[in-house]
């Protein structure tokens, strides 16, 4: 599978990733080469093979529904780019 510039732009949008226009052809080339490498998977017959999502056969652990974390909002917001009155600031979303 090879990807063209238009597809790279579309994927970059899906990933919310700004890519400079002049870099698009290089990404198209590199991503196509990676997908070519990945295509070697098609040589394997995997009919009926159960997919393995995780290396260990384990079930998701559950815990009691109790408060386990203290409030650390002020601490965590101290490293935020922009906050005000305990809120994270972003550009206006709704006109």
């Amino acid at each position: 599978m090879s990807l063209g510039p238009a597809e790279v732009v579309k994927i970059a949008h899906l990933a919310r990733l700004a890519i400079r226009e002049q870099d698009v052809p290089a990404y198209a080339r590199n991503l196509s080469a990676i997908l070519e490498l990945v295509a070697q998977m098609n040589a394997a017959d995997t009919a009926g093979v159960a997919p393995m999502a995780h290396p260990l056969d384990m079930v998701q652990r559950l815990r009691a529904d109790e408060v386990a974390e203290p409030d650390q909002r002020a601490r965590f917001q101290a490293i935020a780019p922009r906050v005000e009155a305990g809120l994270y600031l972003v550009p206006k979303v709704i006109e």
Binding site: L17, L31, I34
Partner: peptide, 20 residues
């Protein structure tokens, strides 16, 4: 904000893998 922060913050190899 999202796209430029990520575009500026990540290097080329990280971007490649995010895109793949």
């Amino acid at each position: 904000l999202y796209t430029r922060s990520r575009g500026e913050g990540f290097g080329a190899e990280v971007k490649r893998r995010i895109l793949v």
